[in-house]
């Protein structure tokens, strides 16, 4: 049956969607604990196949032109370039400890954090040549950018700090203490939001100097933040409490808290409005319907981390 679906699905992707009660396309899930990628059929919420990689894939990013899906295999020291429509691996490039990665909004830079090597690498996205390596202590975790691509911001999980990298001059502008074990970071409405995993909140940070202006409670182990495609809702995953919290992106007021067990981590948004959430410790991907609160879980590989939905773009 799986084999059959694997053949039928690419054809189905080309066909026009009729009455999309469910999102079509594929979900690509990075199983960091058993060196595989799970390719899921979003319409039927089932796993189609597992793609073997080398060691420990964690995070994923779509190239600015949409042609490649980049998967960082931190344990193998290599970057994988996938076909974003099928999840097939096209090529592999040696790269030191690619843990989290993100392209700058203008498409010029690719910033890669090396969590296990205390380094942040900035690459020229067009040539993939290393522009500059920044030794940053300790445990550089997640990265985001200023909308004008002038700055990259990296959380330093081991030292409770946030680092600002001036991309024009390729220097570290400042580092500032933002809270216990900062992990996820995003730019929203002129501020940086930093999820402090060692606490129960995210910090609202001034991007000019790293000063913490406000702390917004979400739940224990606030780990990652995501903005919905319509930019109206901010979603925060709380690793210890096992909750996913929806906040109003404009006011940062809590709208609703959903129970998502198993250490919720990364999120991607399906066109039908559902959230696909990796559940690290129970080897599943949860499909959360915010309208009803219903959570449907799909078994995948061990310690699923990054996720990418082909049908979302």
């Amino acid at each position: 049956m799986r084999l059959l679906l694997a053949f039928i699905l690419p054809l189905a992707l080309l066909a026009p969607m009729a009455g999309p009660a469910r999102a079509g396309g594929l979900a690509i899930v990075l199983n960091s604990g058993d060196a595989t990628l799970s390719v899921l059929d979003m319409a039927h919420e089932t796993e189609l196949r597992r793609v073997p990689v080398l060691r420990e894939p964690h995070h994923v990013a779509l190239s600015p032109d949409g042609a490649d899906l980049l998967v960082g295999d931190a344990g193998a020291n290599e970057m994988l370039f996938l076909d974003p429509r099928t999840g097939d691996i096209r090529r592999r490039v040696p790269m030191a400890d690619p843990y989290h990665l993100a392209f700058s909004p203008n498409g010029k830079w690719l910033t890669v954090t090396g969590l296990a090597r205390n380094q942040v690498d900035v690459y020229d996205a067009a040539t993939m040549a290393l522009a500059k390596r920044f030794p940053l202590s300790t445990m550089p975790s997640h990265v985001t950018y200023a909308p004008d691509s002038s700055m990259a911001y990296v959380t330093l999980q081991g030292t409770n700090r946030l680092a600002a990298i001036d991309l024009r001059h390729q220097v570290v502008s400042w580092t500032a203490e933002v809270g216990a074990t900062p992990a996820g970071v995003i730019w929203l409405n002129g501020k940086l939001l930093v999820a402090n995993m060692g606490s129960d909140h995210f910090a609202v940070v001034d991007p000019v100097d790293g000063r913490v202006e406000q702390r917004i409670h979400t739940g224990r182990g606030a780990h990652q933040l995501f903005l919905s495609p319509d930019r109206k809702t901010l979603w925060v995953n709380n690793r210890v409490d096992g909750t996913t919290v929806a906040l109003d992106a404009a006011t940062l007021a809590t709208i609703h808290s959903y129970r998502v067990p198993g250490g919720p981590d990364c999120i991607d948004f399906a066109p039908d409005g559902k959230l696909w959430i990796t559940q690290r410790f129970i080897q599943k991907v949860g499909v959360l319907d915010p309208a009803t609160g219903a959570l449907q879980s799909i078994p995948v590989g061990r310690s699923p981390h990054g996720i990418f939905l082909t049908g979302a773009r």
Partner: peptide, 15 residues
């Protein structure tokens, strides 16, 4: 989920 994470959270070792 039930033992290690809450313990790490309690002692400030979430990294």
């Amino acid at each position: 989920e039930t033992v290690l994470l809450p313990a790490l959270y309690a002692v400030g070792g979430m990294e």
